[in-house]
Amino acid sequence: MRAPLSTAIAIGAGIITLLGLFIPVEPITSLRGRLIEWAVLLAGVAGLVAIVHLLSVHWRKMTARRNKNIPSAFLLIAFALTFAAGMVLKPGHPSMQKIVTHIQVPIEASLMGVLAVTLTVAAIRLFQRRSGWMSFLFAVSAFVFLIIGSGLLSSSANIPVLKDILAAVNALPVAGARGILIGIALGSLTTGLRVLLGTDRPYSG
């Protein structure tokens, strides 16, 4: 077996956490809480390690002999400036908040704008890519729920038959979403069990 110690730690910690979820008795509950605290702490450290790795990847791209990546230089300079400002001013300082609200938020908002256009174009191209009843149903449902969501039919809420039809139509996506989520929950359960049984060991490198 590869990495038997890592496997034993992963399986042991997983079983204690799982038991603590279903059997809320001492000392399992407090042990579960402690393990989760350690996991969150380790996830934070992993985030820092991964950020340093991200910087090293961009440094390599910027200093490559061939095909130098100029945008990587912008990333490194922006990171250095933001990091230095954060260390000097602390994250709660109004100037640091301005960096977030005046630079990061507008950039992310512009990406959301691009996304809106991208999705519209993708919806138009859907029939070129995949013609079939699923695509037809997808387009019809998107159109119907756009109209219902726009409030155009809000005045019809008092018409008895139309009100019932709208209620039935509105129940359809809820039923569909529940079906998909039940499937995903089952898949999540078996995926988690694969780790607990040692079939999947993504930590075994």
Partner: peptide
């Protein structure tokens, strides 16, 4: 996510070792 990045590196490392080609592994 940082944790996921480390796991992806570890997974690549394990995959190359399992096909006896550890020299292919590059954390980048």
């Amino acid at each position: 996510d940082g944790g996921l990045t480390l796991l992806s590196q570890d997974t690549l490392h394990a995959a190359y070792r399992s096909v006896h080609a550890p020299e292919l592994y590059d954390p980048g």
